[in-house]
């Protein structure tokens, strides 16, 4: 009995260890950040999301699209510009103002010409480039990934994004960095081929085509928060987590109620079970 219990525990532990696949290049594991949305009772911090949006708008959106997010999402519950007064995000004045700043392609209904009109809250965030080829041409052949799901599409999620953004360091001597490439110890990759030093001391990480995008005071925060590199990176990573999972707040809140209910229900069922089986041996 004991043996069986132990082997099953070992089995479960083994399966849990089967999680992350080791990359041959072994980038550094992401730094651990305490996010407001972590844990079973986590929630997005609206002020942080607003700052993060500003970083996205002023820095990242020059090259990165976010095409699965609509302007109205900014006004949804849990989002950066949600206001309880405007339950319908289409009426939210901040959302409308933000949308108007963007232009979307459309057809003139009278002449049929291709035109650009100011976006409405129903539109999606536009891409800085008309297509992939243009995006690559504008970035030395590399395609800046769409940011809608970036926080879920990378192992480590927002921790990884934060580490990458703050992790740029000068390449160690002996590392040959190609043109248009930058060394980042958190970037996935295998640097053995570019390393001329001792074989057991290959630096961790890889090359990324994006130069360090953030620096101190690059974006001014309207709430007075000091605009350090660290703060910008944290805020934009939190914003990207929201963009990837806007329903996170609702998910965790619902989860609490559901699990509480299930615990109580299990208790009731267990009590019923004991009552039903009271006088029966088994």
């Amino acid at each position: 009995m004991m043996l069986r219990k132990l082997s099953i525990l070992a089995a479960v532990a083994g399966l849990m260890a089967a999680g992350p696949v080791l990359a041959a290049g072994h980038p550094l594991p992401p730094k651990n950040v305490e996010w407001s949305f972590e844990g079973p009772f986590g929630k997005f911090d609206q002020a942080q999301l607003q700052r993060g949006y500003k970083v996205y708008r002023e820095v990242c959106s020059a090259c990165h699209s976010m095409s699965l997010v609509s302007f109205r999402n900014l006004g949804d519950k849990g989002g950066p510009f949600y206001n309880a007064k405007y339950k319908n995000p289409n009426d939210n004045p901040w959302v409308k103002a933000i949308a108007k700043d963007y232009e979307v392609a459309d057809i003139d209904s009278e002449t049929g010409d291709a035109i650009k009109r100011p976006a409405t809250s129903a539109d999606r965030f536009t891409s800085p480039y008309p297509n992939e080829a243009a995006a690559r041409a504008g970035n030395g052949g590399a395609l800046p990934p769409d940011m809608s799901l970036l926080a879920k599409a990378r192992t480590g999620g927002p921790d990884y994004l934060y580490s990458l953004l703050t992790g740029y360091v000068a390449p160690p001597t002996g590392l040959k960095v190609g043109a248009g490439q930058h060394y980042n110890p958190y970037m996935a990759g295998d640097l053995t081929a570019s390393w001329s030093g001792p074989h057991d001391k290959v630096p961790p990480g890889g090359f990324i085509a994006m130069a360090a995008p953030l620096k101190k005071d690059l974006v001014s925060f309207d709430d007075g928060t000091p605009s350090t590199l660290d703060q910008q990176a944290k805020d934009v990573s939190a914003f990207l987590m929201w963009a990837a999972e806007p329903k996170l707040d609702e998910r965790k809140e619902t989860g609490f109620v559901v699990i509480l209910y299930l615990l109580l229900f299990s208790g009731l069922l267990y009590a019923s079970y004991r009552k039903v089986w009271k006088n029966e041996s088994h």
Binding site: L262, S266, L269, Y270, Y273, W277
Partner: peptide, 16 residues
């Protein structure tokens, strides 16, 4: 009732 109880506990894991 025994299956019901087991299902309920299983649902807790699922919900988690």
């Amino acid at each position: 009732v025994k299956d019901g109880f087991a299902m309920s506990v299983f649902l807790i894991l699922f919900a988690f």
